[in-house]
Write a protein that binds this DNA or RNA. Structure first.
Lengths: 249, 249
DNA sequence: GCATATTTGTCCGTATGTATA
DNA sequence: CTATACATACGGACAAATATG
Protein backbone atom coordinates (compact mmCIF):
# COMPACT_ATOMS: atom_id res chain seq x y z
CA UNK A 1 0.00 0.00 0.00
CA UNK A 2 3.05 2.25 0.43
CA UNK A 3 1.75 4.42 3.27
CA UNK A 4 3.51 7.76 2.98
CA UNK A 5 1.43 9.51 5.62
CA UNK A 6 4.51 10.62 7.53
CA UNK A 7 5.23 13.42 5.10
CA UNK A 8 2.18 15.05 6.66
CA UNK A 9 3.89 15.31 10.02
CA UNK A 10 7.22 16.25 8.52
CA UNK A 11 5.61 19.29 6.93
CA UNK A 12 4.57 20.37 10.43
CA UNK A 13 8.02 19.79 11.84
CA UNK A 14 9.69 21.77 9.11
CA UNK A 15 7.25 24.46 7.96
CA UNK A 16 8.13 25.98 4.57
CA UNK A 17 9.76 29.39 4.68
CA UNK A 18 7.65 30.75 1.86
CA UNK A 19 4.56 29.37 0.07
CA UNK A 20 5.23 27.27 -2.99
CA UNK A 21 8.71 26.07 -2.18
CA UNK A 22 7.72 22.89 -0.34
CA UNK A 23 6.90 20.10 -2.77
CA UNK A 24 7.00 17.23 -0.27
CA UNK A 25 3.22 16.79 -0.51
CA UNK A 26 3.66 15.61 -4.09
CA UNK A 27 4.84 12.20 -2.87
CA UNK A 28 1.78 11.81 -0.67
CA UNK A 29 -0.52 12.81 -3.52
CA UNK A 30 1.20 10.34 -5.82
CA UNK A 31 0.55 7.62 -3.27
CA UNK A 32 -3.17 8.12 -3.77
CA UNK A 33 -2.95 7.46 -7.48
CA UNK A 34 -3.45 3.73 -6.89
CA UNK A 35 -6.82 3.95 -5.17
CA UNK A 36 -8.68 5.26 -8.19
CA UNK A 37 -12.07 3.65 -8.41
CA UNK A 38 -15.11 5.72 -9.19
CA UNK A 39 -16.62 7.86 -11.94
CA UNK A 40 -14.57 10.14 -14.17
CA UNK A 41 -10.84 10.69 -14.00
CA UNK A 42 -11.24 14.37 -13.32
CA UNK A 43 -13.55 13.60 -10.39
CA UNK A 44 -11.09 11.12 -8.97
CA UNK A 45 -8.21 13.55 -9.30
CA UNK A 46 -10.36 16.20 -7.66
CA UNK A 47 -11.15 13.80 -4.81
CA UNK A 48 -7.48 13.21 -4.11
CA UNK A 49 -6.59 16.87 -4.22
CA UNK A 50 -9.66 17.82 -2.18
CA UNK A 51 -8.63 15.47 0.61
CA UNK A 52 -5.09 16.79 0.60
CA UNK A 53 -6.19 20.38 0.65
CA UNK A 54 -8.78 19.97 3.40
CA UNK A 55 -6.24 17.99 5.41
CA UNK A 56 -4.04 21.04 5.32
CA UNK A 57 -1.24 19.24 3.55
CA UNK A 58 -1.19 21.83 0.82
CA UNK A 59 -0.74 25.13 2.59
CA UNK A 60 -2.47 28.35 1.51
CA UNK A 61 -0.56 30.07 -1.26
CA UNK A 62 0.84 26.82 -2.67
CA UNK A 63 0.78 26.64 -6.43
CA UNK A 64 -0.38 23.43 -8.04
CA UNK A 65 1.90 23.02 -11.01
CA UNK A 66 0.32 21.24 -13.97
CA UNK A 67 3.59 19.62 -14.95
CA UNK A 68 4.40 18.19 -11.53
CA UNK A 69 0.87 17.05 -10.76
CA UNK A 70 0.21 15.37 -14.07
CA UNK A 71 3.37 13.40 -13.43
CA UNK A 72 2.46 12.57 -9.83
CA UNK A 73 -1.13 11.56 -10.62
CA UNK A 74 -0.41 10.00 -14.01
CA UNK A 75 -3.11 11.86 -15.88
CA UNK A 76 -3.04 14.16 -18.86
CA UNK A 77 -2.92 17.92 -18.50
CA UNK A 78 -6.45 18.26 -19.82
CA UNK A 79 -7.86 15.93 -17.18
CA UNK A 80 -5.89 17.69 -14.49
CA UNK A 81 -7.21 21.05 -15.59
CA UNK A 82 -10.73 19.67 -15.50
CA UNK A 83 -10.16 18.65 -11.88
CA UNK A 84 -8.84 22.15 -11.18
CA UNK A 85 -12.11 23.58 -12.46
CA UNK A 86 -14.12 21.37 -10.16
CA UNK A 87 -12.12 22.41 -7.11
CA UNK A 88 -12.14 26.06 -8.10
CA UNK A 89 -15.92 25.79 -8.18
CA UNK A 90 -15.84 24.50 -4.61
CA UNK A 91 -13.64 27.35 -3.48
CA UNK A 92 -10.74 25.03 -2.67
CA UNK A 93 -8.57 26.49 -5.42
CA UNK A 94 -8.25 29.90 -6.98
CA UNK A 95 -7.34 30.46 -10.59
CA UNK A 96 -5.03 33.29 -11.64
CA UNK A 97 -4.95 34.05 -15.34
CA UNK A 98 -1.75 32.86 -17.04
CA UNK A 99 -0.29 32.05 -13.64
CA UNK A 100 -1.99 28.84 -12.60
CA UNK A 101 -4.05 27.58 -9.69
CA UNK A 102 -3.26 28.09 -6.02
CA UNK A 103 -4.56 27.03 -2.64
CA UNK A 104 -6.48 30.15 -1.60
CA UNK A 105 -5.04 32.37 1.08
CA UNK A 106 -8.17 33.63 2.77
CA UNK A 107 -8.25 37.02 4.43
CA UNK A 108 -10.09 38.45 7.40
CA UNK A 109 -12.64 39.88 4.99
CA UNK A 110 -13.26 36.40 3.65
CA UNK A 111 -13.79 35.12 7.16
CA UNK A 112 -16.36 37.80 7.93
CA UNK A 113 -18.06 37.36 4.57
CA UNK A 114 -18.19 33.62 5.02
CA UNK A 115 -19.80 33.87 8.44
CA UNK A 116 -22.26 36.42 7.13
CA UNK A 117 -23.74 33.91 4.72
CA UNK A 118 -23.45 30.99 7.13
CA UNK A 119 -25.41 32.91 9.74
CA UNK A 120 -28.11 33.90 7.26
CA UNK A 121 -28.63 30.34 6.08
CA UNK A 122 -28.34 28.43 9.34
CA UNK A 123 -30.50 30.82 11.34
CA UNK A 124 -33.12 30.80 8.62
CA UNK A 125 -33.13 27.01 8.61
CA UNK A 126 -33.63 26.82 12.38
CA UNK A 127 -36.21 29.58 12.49
CA UNK A 128 -38.42 28.00 9.87
CA UNK A 129 -38.31 24.46 11.17
CA UNK A 130 -41.66 22.93 12.00
CA UNK A 131 -43.13 19.56 12.89
CA UNK A 132 -39.82 17.77 12.97
CA UNK A 133 -39.87 14.01 13.32
CA UNK A 134 -37.69 13.10 16.34
CA UNK A 135 -35.45 10.72 14.41
CA UNK A 136 -34.42 13.49 12.04
CA UNK A 137 -32.34 14.93 14.85
CA UNK A 138 -30.42 11.67 15.22
CA UNK A 139 -27.52 12.68 12.96
CA UNK A 140 -27.11 15.81 15.06
CA UNK A 141 -27.10 13.74 18.27
CA UNK A 142 -24.42 11.50 16.80
CA UNK A 143 -22.29 14.49 15.89
CA UNK A 144 -22.58 16.01 19.35
CA UNK A 145 -21.63 12.73 20.98
CA UNK A 146 -18.72 12.32 18.56
CA UNK A 147 -17.42 15.77 19.44
CA UNK A 148 -17.74 15.07 23.17
CA UNK A 149 -15.87 11.78 22.80
CA UNK A 150 -13.16 13.41 20.72
CA UNK A 151 -12.77 16.17 23.29
CA UNK A 152 -12.24 13.59 26.05
CA UNK A 153 -9.59 11.96 23.89
CA UNK A 154 -7.98 15.34 23.32
CA UNK A 155 -8.36 15.06 19.57
CA UNK A 156 -9.30 18.63 18.73
CA UNK A 157 -9.07 18.15 15.01
CA UNK A 158 -11.76 15.47 15.32
CA UNK A 159 -13.79 17.86 17.45
CA UNK A 160 -13.63 20.41 14.67
CA UNK A 161 -14.67 17.82 12.09
CA UNK A 162 -17.62 16.66 14.19
CA UNK A 163 -18.62 20.26 14.72
CA UNK A 164 -18.68 20.87 10.97
CA UNK A 165 -20.76 17.76 10.44
CA UNK A 166 -23.16 19.04 13.05
CA UNK A 167 -23.71 22.24 11.09
CA UNK A 168 -23.97 20.37 7.81
CA UNK A 169 -26.66 18.13 9.26
CA UNK A 170 -28.38 21.16 10.78
CA UNK A 171 -28.73 22.77 7.37
CA UNK A 172 -29.77 19.39 5.99
CA UNK A 173 -32.92 19.58 8.10
CA UNK A 174 -34.26 22.15 5.66
CA UNK A 175 -34.12 19.61 2.85
CA UNK A 176 -32.78 22.22 0.45
CA UNK A 177 -30.33 21.05 -2.18
CA UNK A 178 -29.01 24.53 -2.81
CA UNK A 179 -28.56 25.35 0.87
CA UNK A 180 -26.67 22.09 1.30
CA UNK A 181 -24.44 22.92 -1.64
CA UNK A 182 -23.60 26.43 -0.48
CA UNK A 183 -23.03 25.22 3.07
CA UNK A 184 -20.66 22.57 1.79
CA UNK A 185 -18.61 25.20 0.07
CA UNK A 186 -18.63 27.53 3.06
CA UNK A 187 -17.45 24.80 5.41
CA UNK A 188 -14.70 23.82 2.98
CA UNK A 189 -13.46 27.39 3.01
CA UNK A 190 -13.77 27.52 6.78
CA UNK A 191 -11.56 24.46 7.01
CA UNK A 192 -8.91 26.29 5.01
CA UNK A 193 -9.00 29.05 7.60
CA UNK A 194 -8.51 26.60 10.47
CA UNK A 195 -5.20 25.50 9.01
CA UNK A 196 -3.55 28.85 9.49
CA UNK A 197 -4.53 28.91 13.16
CA UNK A 198 -2.35 27.46 15.88
CA UNK A 199 -4.68 26.52 18.76
CA UNK A 200 -7.68 24.42 17.73
CA UNK A 201 -8.69 23.58 21.31
CA UNK A 202 -9.64 27.10 22.37
CA UNK A 203 -11.61 27.52 19.15
CA UNK A 204 -13.70 24.37 19.23
CA UNK A 205 -14.01 23.60 22.93
CA UNK A 206 -16.73 26.12 23.85
CA UNK A 207 -19.04 24.95 21.09
CA UNK A 208 -19.33 21.34 22.18
CA UNK A 209 -21.67 22.34 24.99
CA UNK A 210 -23.42 24.94 22.87
CA UNK A 211 -24.11 22.37 20.18
CA UNK A 212 -25.76 20.17 22.76
CA UNK A 213 -27.77 23.08 24.15
CA UNK A 214 -28.89 23.96 20.64
CA UNK A 215 -29.87 20.37 20.04
CA UNK A 216 -32.03 20.34 23.19
CA UNK A 217 -33.82 23.49 22.07
CA UNK A 218 -34.52 21.88 18.69
CA UNK A 219 -35.77 18.69 20.33
CA UNK A 220 -38.10 20.80 22.48
CA UNK A 221 -39.42 22.56 19.41
CA UNK A 222 -38.23 25.95 20.64
CA UNK A 223 -37.18 27.09 17.19
CA UNK A 224 -37.26 30.83 17.81
CA UNK A 225 -35.07 30.56 20.89
CA UNK A 226 -32.81 28.14 19.04
CA UNK A 227 -32.41 30.60 16.19
CA UNK A 228 -31.55 33.40 18.59
CA UNK A 229 -29.02 31.21 20.38
CA UNK A 230 -27.51 30.08 17.09
CA UNK A 231 -27.19 33.67 15.93
CA UNK A 232 -25.19 34.61 19.02
CA UNK A 233 -23.26 31.35 18.75
CA UNK A 234 -22.15 32.24 15.25
CA UNK A 235 -21.21 35.79 16.21
CA UNK A 236 -19.07 34.46 19.07
CA UNK A 237 -17.48 31.85 16.86
CA UNK A 238 -16.65 34.46 14.23
CA UNK A 239 -15.14 36.79 16.83
CA UNK A 240 -13.02 34.03 18.31
CA UNK A 241 -11.80 32.89 14.94
CA UNK A 242 -11.03 36.45 13.93
CA UNK A 243 -8.97 37.01 17.07
CA UNK A 244 -7.06 33.78 16.54
CA UNK A 245 -6.53 34.66 12.89
CA UNK A 246 -5.02 38.02 13.77
CA UNK A 247 -2.63 36.43 16.22
CA UNK A 248 -1.54 33.61 13.93
CA UNK A 249 2.04 32.50 13.29
CA UNK B 1 -21.42 42.24 -39.54
CA UNK B 2 -23.80 39.54 -40.79
CA UNK B 3 -26.63 40.09 -38.33
CA UNK B 4 -28.50 36.81 -37.95
CA UNK B 5 -30.74 37.95 -35.14
CA UNK B 6 -33.87 36.95 -37.01
CA UNK B 7 -33.40 33.28 -36.24
CA UNK B 8 -34.27 34.26 -32.70
CA UNK B 9 -37.77 35.25 -33.73
CA UNK B 10 -38.15 32.32 -36.08
CA UNK B 11 -37.62 29.97 -33.16
CA UNK B 12 -40.62 31.57 -31.49
CA UNK B 13 -42.76 31.20 -34.59
CA UNK B 14 -41.93 27.56 -34.98
CA UNK B 15 -41.36 26.06 -31.51
CA UNK B 16 -39.57 22.70 -31.53
CA UNK B 17 -41.72 19.64 -31.00
CA UNK B 18 -39.28 17.98 -28.61
CA UNK B 19 -36.13 19.22 -26.87
CA UNK B 20 -32.88 18.66 -28.69
CA UNK B 21 -34.21 18.39 -32.22
CA UNK B 22 -34.03 22.07 -33.09
CA UNK B 23 -30.53 23.11 -34.08
CA UNK B 24 -31.45 26.46 -35.61
CA UNK B 25 -29.84 28.32 -32.69
CA UNK B 26 -26.46 27.06 -33.89
CA UNK B 27 -26.46 29.60 -36.69
CA UNK B 28 -27.20 32.42 -34.28
CA UNK B 29 -24.43 31.26 -31.96
CA UNK B 30 -22.02 31.01 -34.88
CA UNK B 31 -22.84 34.62 -35.73
CA UNK B 32 -21.41 35.64 -32.39
CA UNK B 33 -18.07 34.06 -33.17
CA UNK B 34 -16.93 37.29 -34.80
CA UNK B 35 -17.39 39.54 -31.78
CA UNK B 36 -14.80 37.79 -29.65
CA UNK B 37 -12.79 40.36 -27.79
CA UNK B 38 -11.98 39.91 -24.15
CA UNK B 39 -9.97 37.69 -21.81
CA UNK B 40 -9.69 33.94 -22.27
CA UNK B 41 -11.26 31.97 -25.06
CA UNK B 42 -13.26 29.87 -22.65
CA UNK B 43 -14.69 33.01 -21.05
CA UNK B 44 -15.67 34.41 -24.41
CA UNK B 45 -17.35 31.20 -25.44
CA UNK B 46 -19.12 31.11 -22.08
CA UNK B 47 -20.29 34.69 -22.65
CA UNK B 48 -21.86 33.83 -25.97
CA UNK B 49 -23.58 30.73 -24.68
CA UNK B 50 -24.68 32.49 -21.50
CA UNK B 51 -26.40 35.19 -23.51
CA UNK B 52 -28.12 32.65 -25.72
CA UNK B 53 -29.29 30.57 -22.80
CA UNK B 54 -30.58 33.48 -20.73
CA UNK B 55 -32.32 34.83 -23.82
CA UNK B 56 -34.21 31.58 -23.94
CA UNK B 57 -32.90 30.71 -27.39
CA UNK B 58 -31.67 27.37 -26.15
CA UNK B 59 -34.70 25.73 -24.61
CA UNK B 60 -34.54 23.58 -21.46
CA UNK B 61 -33.54 20.03 -22.28
CA UNK B 62 -31.46 21.04 -25.29
CA UNK B 63 -28.17 19.22 -25.54
CA UNK B 64 -25.07 21.21 -26.40
CA UNK B 65 -23.09 18.88 -28.61
CA UNK B 66 -19.35 19.36 -28.43
CA UNK B 67 -18.91 18.49 -32.08
CA UNK B 68 -21.52 20.92 -33.41
CA UNK B 69 -20.54 23.77 -31.11
CA UNK B 70 -16.82 23.55 -31.68
CA UNK B 71 -17.62 23.85 -35.36
CA UNK B 72 -20.01 26.77 -34.88
CA UNK B 73 -17.75 28.71 -32.52
CA UNK B 74 -14.46 27.71 -34.13
CA UNK B 75 -12.79 26.62 -30.92
CA UNK B 76 -11.28 23.35 -29.76
CA UNK B 77 -13.09 20.77 -27.65
CA UNK B 78 -10.92 21.59 -24.66
CA UNK B 79 -11.80 25.25 -24.75
CA UNK B 80 -15.45 24.42 -25.25
CA UNK B 81 -15.46 22.04 -22.31
CA UNK B 82 -13.81 24.71 -20.21
CA UNK B 83 -16.67 27.04 -21.08
CA UNK B 84 -19.13 24.29 -20.20
CA UNK B 85 -17.56 24.05 -16.76
CA UNK B 86 -17.97 27.76 -16.19
CA UNK B 87 -21.62 27.70 -17.14
CA UNK B 88 -22.29 24.55 -15.14
CA UNK B 89 -20.89 26.40 -12.16
CA UNK B 90 -23.41 29.17 -12.78
CA UNK B 91 -26.26 26.70 -12.97
CA UNK B 92 -26.93 27.50 -16.63
CA UNK B 93 -25.92 24.03 -17.76
CA UNK B 94 -26.12 20.58 -16.23
CA UNK B 95 -23.58 17.86 -16.86
CA UNK B 96 -24.68 14.26 -17.29
CA UNK B 97 -21.93 11.69 -17.11
CA UNK B 98 -21.04 10.24 -20.51
CA UNK B 99 -24.01 11.99 -22.03
CA UNK B 100 -22.94 15.60 -22.32
CA UNK B 101 -24.21 18.97 -21.14
CA UNK B 102 -27.79 20.17 -21.35
CA UNK B 103 -29.81 23.28 -20.66
CA UNK B 104 -31.35 22.39 -17.29
CA UNK B 105 -35.01 21.53 -17.16
CA UNK B 106 -35.95 22.83 -13.74
CA UNK B 107 -38.76 21.28 -11.76
CA UNK B 108 -41.26 22.61 -9.25
CA UNK B 109 -38.99 21.35 -6.50
CA UNK B 110 -36.17 23.43 -7.93
CA UNK B 111 -38.41 26.48 -7.94
CA UNK B 112 -39.34 26.02 -4.28
CA UNK B 113 -35.75 25.27 -3.32
CA UNK B 114 -34.49 28.28 -5.19
CA UNK B 115 -36.94 30.63 -3.48
CA UNK B 116 -36.10 29.11 -0.13
CA UNK B 117 -32.52 30.28 -0.39
CA UNK B 118 -33.39 33.58 -2.05
CA UNK B 119 -35.75 34.41 0.79
CA UNK B 120 -33.18 33.50 3.44
CA UNK B 121 -30.51 35.68 1.88
CA UNK B 122 -32.53 38.71 0.81
CA UNK B 123 -34.50 38.94 4.04
CA UNK B 124 -31.32 38.63 6.07
CA UNK B 125 -29.70 41.39 4.03
CA UNK B 126 -32.61 43.75 4.58
CA UNK B 127 -33.03 42.90 8.25
CA UNK B 128 -29.41 43.59 9.08
CA UNK B 129 -29.03 46.82 7.16
CA UNK B 130 -27.93 49.80 9.21
CA UNK B 131 -26.74 53.35 8.68
CA UNK B 132 -27.18 53.29 4.96
CA UNK B 133 -25.85 56.25 2.98
CA UNK B 134 -28.74 57.60 0.84
CA UNK B 135 -26.85 57.31 -2.45
CA UNK B 136 -26.39 53.61 -1.95
CA UNK B 137 -30.06 53.18 -2.75
CA UNK B 138 -29.63 54.93 -6.09
CA UNK B 139 -29.14 51.74 -8.13
CA UNK B 140 -32.37 50.42 -6.65
CA UNK B 141 -34.19 53.63 -7.59
CA UNK B 142 -32.90 53.34 -11.13
CA UNK B 143 -34.12 49.77 -11.38
CA UNK B 144 -37.57 50.65 -10.08
CA UNK B 145 -37.86 53.50 -12.57
CA UNK B 146 -36.64 51.26 -15.37
CA UNK B 147 -39.27 48.68 -14.57
CA UNK B 148 -41.99 51.32 -14.44
CA UNK B 149 -40.93 52.71 -17.79
CA UNK B 150 -40.78 49.26 -19.32
CA UNK B 151 -44.25 48.48 -18.00
CA UNK B 152 -45.63 51.61 -19.65
CA UNK B 153 -44.02 50.50 -22.89
CA UNK B 154 -45.54 47.06 -22.49
CA UNK B 155 -42.11 45.41 -22.55
CA UNK B 156 -42.63 42.76 -19.89
CA UNK B 157 -39.36 41.00 -20.57
CA UNK B 158 -37.57 44.26 -19.73
CA UNK B 159 -39.71 44.53 -16.60
CA UNK B 160 -38.51 41.11 -15.55
CA UNK B 161 -34.89 42.06 -16.22
CA UNK B 162 -35.17 45.30 -14.24
CA UNK B 163 -36.81 43.38 -11.42
CA UNK B 164 -33.90 40.96 -11.28
CA UNK B 165 -31.43 43.82 -11.25
CA UNK B 166 -33.37 45.30 -8.35
CA UNK B 167 -32.89 42.15 -6.31
CA UNK B 168 -29.27 41.87 -7.30
CA UNK B 169 -28.64 45.42 -6.15
CA UNK B 170 -30.63 44.77 -2.99
CA UNK B 171 -28.33 41.92 -2.03
CA UNK B 172 -25.38 44.07 -3.06
CA UNK B 173 -26.19 46.43 -0.19
CA UNK B 174 -24.78 43.81 2.19
CA UNK B 175 -21.37 44.09 0.53
CA UNK B 176 -20.92 40.34 0.66
CA UNK B 177 -19.04 38.72 -2.20
CA UNK B 178 -20.44 35.29 -1.47
CA UNK B 179 -24.02 36.48 -1.19
CA UNK B 180 -23.63 38.28 -4.50
CA UNK B 181 -22.26 35.14 -6.11
CA UNK B 182 -25.01 32.87 -4.86
CA UNK B 183 -27.68 35.40 -5.77
CA UNK B 184 -26.27 35.65 -9.27
CA UNK B 185 -26.64 31.94 -9.70
CA UNK B 186 -30.13 31.86 -8.22
CA UNK B 187 -31.32 34.62 -10.54
CA UNK B 188 -29.82 32.86 -13.54
CA UNK B 189 -31.77 29.75 -12.66
CA UNK B 190 -34.89 31.81 -12.10
CA UNK B 191 -34.52 33.24 -15.58
CA UNK B 192 -34.50 29.71 -16.97
CA UNK B 193 -37.82 29.11 -15.25
CA UNK B 194 -39.36 32.21 -16.79
CA UNK B 195 -38.76 30.81 -20.26
CA UNK B 196 -41.15 27.92 -19.80
CA UNK B 197 -43.91 30.26 -18.71
CA UNK B 198 -46.29 31.85 -21.15
CA UNK B 199 -47.54 35.07 -19.52
CA UNK B 200 -44.78 37.33 -18.22
CA UNK B 201 -47.08 40.27 -17.58
CA UNK B 202 -49.16 38.68 -14.84
CA UNK B 203 -45.97 37.50 -13.14
CA UNK B 204 -44.01 40.72 -13.08
CA UNK B 205 -46.68 43.41 -12.99
CA UNK B 206 -47.62 43.21 -9.29
CA UNK B 207 -44.02 43.58 -8.16
CA UNK B 208 -43.31 46.90 -9.79
CA UNK B 209 -45.32 48.69 -7.11
CA UNK B 210 -44.06 46.40 -4.37
CA UNK B 211 -40.46 47.11 -5.33
CA UNK B 212 -41.15 50.82 -4.98
CA UNK B 213 -42.89 50.28 -1.64
CA UNK B 214 -39.92 48.25 -0.44
CA UNK B 215 -37.56 50.96 -1.58
CA UNK B 216 -39.46 53.59 0.41
CA UNK B 217 -39.27 51.47 3.54
CA UNK B 218 -35.53 51.12 3.06
CA UNK B 219 -35.12 54.85 2.49
CA UNK B 220 -37.04 55.47 5.72
CA UNK B 221 -34.75 53.11 7.59
CA UNK B 222 -37.63 50.79 8.48
CA UNK B 223 -35.58 47.67 8.00
CA UNK B 224 -37.66 45.30 10.13
CA UNK B 225 -40.87 46.22 8.33
CA UNK B 226 -39.07 46.04 5.01
CA UNK B 227 -37.82 42.54 5.82
CA UNK B 228 -41.33 41.41 6.75
CA UNK B 229 -42.76 42.90 3.57
CA UNK B 230 -40.02 41.31 1.47
CA UNK B 231 -40.68 37.94 3.07
CA UNK B 232 -44.34 38.05 2.09
CA UNK B 233 -43.37 39.46 -1.31
CA UNK B 234 -41.17 36.45 -1.97
CA UNK B 235 -43.81 34.01 -0.80
CA UNK B 236 -46.37 35.58 -3.12
CA UNK B 237 -43.92 35.62 -6.01
CA UNK B 238 -43.12 31.97 -5.47
CA UNK B 239 -46.78 31.02 -5.32
CA UNK B 240 -47.58 32.92 -8.49
CA UNK B 241 -44.67 31.42 -10.35
CA UNK B 242 -45.57 27.97 -9.13
CA UNK B 243 -49.14 28.35 -10.36
CA UNK B 244 -47.97 29.61 -13.74
CA UNK B 245 -45.46 26.80 -13.93
CA UNK B 246 -48.12 24.16 -13.34
CA UNK B 247 -50.31 25.63 -16.06
CA UNK B 248 -47.54 25.97 -18.63
CA UNK B 249 -47.63 24.82 -22.27
C1' DG C 1 15.23 47.70 -19.24
C1' DC C 2 16.16 43.43 -21.75
C1' DA C 3 16.66 38.58 -23.00
C1' DT C 4 15.80 34.12 -21.39
C1' DA C 5 13.44 30.16 -19.43
C1' DT C 6 9.36 28.47 -17.48
C1' DT C 7 4.50 27.87 -17.25
C1' DT C 8 0.06 28.32 -18.77
C1' DG C 9 -3.45 28.79 -22.71
C1' DT C 10 -5.10 26.75 -26.75
C1' DC C 11 -5.46 23.54 -30.44
C1' DC C 12 -5.22 19.13 -32.93
C1' DG C 13 -5.53 14.06 -33.87
C1' DT C 14 -6.55 9.79 -32.12
C1' DA C 15 -7.92 5.95 -29.23
C1' DT C 16 -11.12 4.10 -25.89
C1' DG C 17 -15.27 3.53 -23.42
C1' DT C 18 -20.23 4.36 -22.74
C1' DA C 19 -25.09 5.10 -23.80
C1' DT C 20 -28.73 4.74 -27.01
C1' DA C 21 -31.12 3.22 -31.31
C1' DC D 1 -27.06 -7.99 -29.82
C1' DT D 2 -24.87 -5.07 -33.01
C1' DA D 3 -24.00 -0.69 -34.65
C1' DT D 4 -23.59 4.12 -34.27
C1' DA D 5 -22.89 8.41 -32.11
C1' DC D 6 -20.89 10.68 -28.61
C1' DA D 7 -18.22 11.82 -24.55
C1' DT D 8 -13.92 10.73 -22.18
C1' DA D 9 -9.05 10.67 -22.06
C1' DC D 10 -4.49 10.86 -23.93
C1' DG D 11 -0.14 12.99 -25.93
C1' DG D 12 2.05 16.27 -28.63
C1' DA D 13 2.57 20.83 -30.39
C1' DC D 14 2.78 25.84 -30.61
C1' DA D 15 1.49 30.53 -28.97
C1' DA D 16 1.21 33.75 -25.30
C1' DA D 17 2.05 35.46 -20.86
C1' DT D 18 4.77 35.52 -16.86
C1' DA D 19 8.77 35.04 -14.00
C1' DT D 20 13.76 35.09 -13.62
C1' DG D 21 18.43 36.30 -14.54
Amino acid sequence: MGDDARVSSSSEIRPPAEPGTDTSWLRAVAGDAALFDRSSSAERVADVLRRRITEGLLRPGTQLSEELLKEALQVSRNTLREAFRLLTHEGLLVHKMHRGVFVPDLTEDDLVDLYRLRRAIECDVVRSLGDLAPDRLQPLRDDVEASEAAALAGDWVAVGTANMRFHRHLVGLAGSTRMDEVTGRLLAELRLLFHVIATPQALHEPYIARNRALLELLAAGEYERAAAELNQYMLDSEAGLLAAFRGRG
